[in-house]
Design a protein around this nucleic acid. Structure first.
Lengths: 156, 156
DNA sequence: ATTGAAACGACTAGAGA
DNA sequence: TCTCTAGTCGTTTCAAT
């Protein structure tokens, strides 16, 4: 599963992680090779699944989504079937944008985005807390995001 | 601060959020206008800060970062100066990739990525717990990421 | 605001080192 | 592997609406 990459591949990944819309010629220039092999490397990295996709980062506040919160969810039962059942529920909730299954007392961490507090509270009470197998829910509002780096710590 | 967008702008944001590397002509085709005005709209959205950037999503596991964990940090003092002081520390820790200031008993939620458990534990014990003003640290390992959507819930 | 045309530059296949 | 060349296609400016 682990990939074998040379220095140029790492450099490509580092540049793309920081600017996913960089043109191939600019990328090639930065990593010090000509455009055709650079493009082939990018395609190979996509093919291998190391590059999972390209995403535009939007400003959710300016778009009317003022509230971001984390919900820590404990379940009654943690059998694989029940975990999958809960995941399926999560998949259907539009204001849950990210979900992590955790070890420890909290079973799931859900990142929720809503236009306002009211909408968030309605969701927590009417949907999340009311869902089958949900034992406990603790919610924390985010005051601000204080750091937001691409997920892979490639040395810079 | 809120932006006034028409249906085409929303459509552009929706498409770009899902595929940040789409060409402008393809984007224009999808939203139903010709390329030049489409490009000007995208530039305007970038200018207005609604588009904050473009990012490539990498597979951290394949790249040797097997461990993702969340650290919930409580501080002794929550004066603005002390919060800023902690944020500054956080900025310097390379394996903390995202950080959120929260309301409630937990002051900060840190998303950490490390090559292995050992590295994570070293960080938690030697750096995080040892940092000035840090009161309590609770850590939860992620077993799997069960949902990962772009952050703004544009209806699809 | 938009379209359409045109110049410019990037993308990408192919040939050859 | 790479570089170089060349044709195709995308980007971006501008005139006109």
């Amino acid at each position: 599963m682990k990939a074998r990459l040379d220095a140029i591949d790492w450099h490509i990944l580092k540049e793309l992680q920081q600017d996913g819309r960089m043109t191939n010629v600019e990328l090639a220039r930065r990593v010090g090779i000509s455009a055709p092999p650079c493009l082939r490397r990018v395609r190979a990295l996509e093919e291998a699944g190391l590059v999972k996709g390209y995403r535009t980062i939007l400003d959710e506040k300016q778009l009317g989504y003022d509230v971001t919160a984390f919900a820590m969810v404990g379940l009654h039962s943690q059998t694989e079937a029940d975990l999958l059942g809960f995941e399926k529920q999560v998949a259907g909730w539009k204001l849950v944008r990210e979900s992590y299954m955790l070890s420890g007392e909290v079973d799931f961490l859900l990142k929720c985005v809503a236009p306002d507090l009211q909408t968030l509270q309605n969701f927590i009470i009417s949907e999340l807390t009311a869902a089958p197998n949900v034992d406990s829910v603790r919610t924390a509002l985010t005051i601000r995001k204080t750091k937001d780096l691409p997920i892979v710590p490639i040395d810079e």
